[in-house]
Nucleic acid binder design. Structure first.
Lengths: 209, 209
DNA sequence: CCTTGTGAAAGTATTCACAGCA
DNA sequence: TGCTGTGAATACTTTCACAAGG
């Protein structure tokens, strides 16, 4: 496997392919062509083949891809052949909902630490058995629990400060639900989840599209 | 304003610019250069100028952009000079958290209808005064309440069926939190919010990057 | 002198089209 | 024959670089 810069969009699509493949495993579909998978994921078949080509050869000419094998290979590419430990900050409505959400666990993401600055919440035990810590203890608790990915669910004005604490752990990857752009040094990575940005796209589409 | 196909990425960035500009309005910053705004949003200054150029001329040479004016103009471009009515389906942890979330209201998005198939939930009144309806009533209630954007928070296997009902209303824009690709006809638009896709990106970065 | 607005250039990403192989 | 793997072609995006203008 020779080195080559992989487009970020390719990684995102691999993730989407894996969702579709998981569905096929459940249905018992043994083999799939790039055409069929493409239709399911709303992309061009050549796109799928190109995306996979960055990492090797996974198919059989004239046949297609073996679903289970391909899923396994994609998960391995993405680094999902291990569990990842998450630490979450901001136990408001959204934070609590994320903690309880089944999808994370299903995909191998596990919450190992939770934080909030509200003294009414600190010390409370969650349904999962997780205890809420004050934010001052973030660095220590993250180190103790082996947190690898930080999830930020605080109001926007707190987000950068929380991020800075994570950098100190160091936790090198952040999932940010606050509607601000977080600044991090090279080597760290932030993914933003901003619902209202998506809604704005829809609003634009309804207005102009 | 001459016609030209606008990149989807441009719309997403406009939305991000508007978040930064909102912050500046609060701080009382009167004027901003493309350079400063770019640093704040993590993009190239020329990118900002190009994005805006699709829609007209908004700046003053040698000076920059008047923050309030630019924010107003961007919001108008995005179609945010009106309120948008949302209908949400699936009142689990996530659905309830979204309903309660302040950001939506702040950005001019208002929930006007809520649905669930769980008979324990149907008929319950939420804190916002909203009543949970059974999904069979989706088409009627959406028409009555003037819902314009549908929000799907159901498990993945229900998502396409819900989408089909929305199409019938017709609600032409959907925000989908279920980790499946939803198929819709031309003219309809779906935006996906999949946390685990974002997490997979982070996992890849931690593994390979 | 500073910063916008914008053609032209560079850089990326996607799609085509077909050779290669089961 | 059918579908993958992939170079070549196309399309799209971003960045550069500078003229225009307060």
């Amino acid at each position: 496997m020779k080195y080559l810069k992989i487009p970020a969009a390719t990684i995102t699509r691999l993730s989407i392919y894996s969702r579709a493949l998981e569905g096929m495993v459940e249905d018992g579909t043994p083999v799939v062509s790039s055409k069929t998978l493409a239709d399911l994921c709303g992309v061009n078949p050549a796109q799928i083949r190109k995306d996979l080509a960055y990492f090797g050869q996974f198919g059989v000419r004239g046949v297609g891809y073996f679903v289970k094998e391909l899923l396994f290979d994609i998960k391995k590419i993405l680094g999902l052949n291990k569990e990842w430990n998450l630490a979450i900050v901001g136990m408001g409505n959204l934070g609590c909902a994320l903690l309880a959400h089944q999808n994370f666990a299903k995909q191998g993401y596990r919450f190992v630490a939770a934080f909030d600055n509200d003294m009414m919440k600190v010390g409370r035990k969650l349904a999962t058995g997780l205890m809420i810590h004050p934010i001052d203890e973030l660095v220590r608790v993250c180190r103790d629990t082996g947190a690898e990915i930080g999830v930020i669910c605080t109001p926007p004005d707190k987000a950068q400060d929380i991020a800075n604490r994570f950098l100190e752990v160091p936790v090198k990857a952040l999932l940010n639900f606050a509607p601000v752009q977080i600044q991090v040094p090279d080597g760290f990575k932030v993914e933003n989840v901003d619902f209202t940005v998506k809604l704005d796209n829809l609003a634009y589409h309804l207005t102009a599209g």
